[in-house]
């Protein structure tokens, strides 16, 4: 798998700090038998945690919305583009896992970049 290019410090900071209340990603967690628990996401660490594979629940997110949010609101067009490609194949859970792998990679990059600054 191609690695993502290292983010600029400003982008790294934005990804980690998160966005305003009204700009959050509308997402949730599907927890049987409770249903979908609305869990809006403001930052990349929150998103990474939401998408992390978990036997008890599934992420609840529209991939189009996710890609739009990462590219538009967070301003990470590279990550958005890679996720768009990655979720094209396979089932919904495969898509969540692929998105999670990319987001984990980006999160590690952002953390290391922020640590270096």
């Amino acid at each position: 798998m191609r690695t993502l290019a290292a983010p600029e410090p400003e982008l790294a900071k934005r990804l980690l700090l998160g966005v305003r209340y009204e700009d959050r990603l509308r997402a949730g967690l599907l927890v049987p038998p409770r249903g979908v628990v609305e869990t809006p996401v403001a930052s990349l660490p929150e998103l990474c945690s939401l998408l992390e594979p978990d036997a008890r629940c599934l992420p609840a997110v529209h991939f189009d919305t996710l890609v739009e949010w990462i590219g538009g609101v967070l301003g990470d067009t590279e990550l958005a583009g890679r996720i768009r490609e990655a979720v094209r194949e396979g089932c919904y859970v495969d898509g969540c896992r692929a998105a999670h792998a990319l987001i984990s990679e980006r999160l590690a990059q952002a953390r290391s970049c922020a640590g270096a600054v």
């Binding site: 927890v31 409770r34 628990v37 869990t39 930052s43 929150e46 990474c48 945690s49 939401l50 999160l107």
Partner: peptide
């Protein structure tokens, strides 16, 4: 679970 969506903001990814 009731408070999880709110706690998630504070925990910033720490499950």
């Amino acid at each position: 679970n009731w408070y999880a969506p709110f706690a998630a903001k504070v925990a910033k990814g720490d499950k």
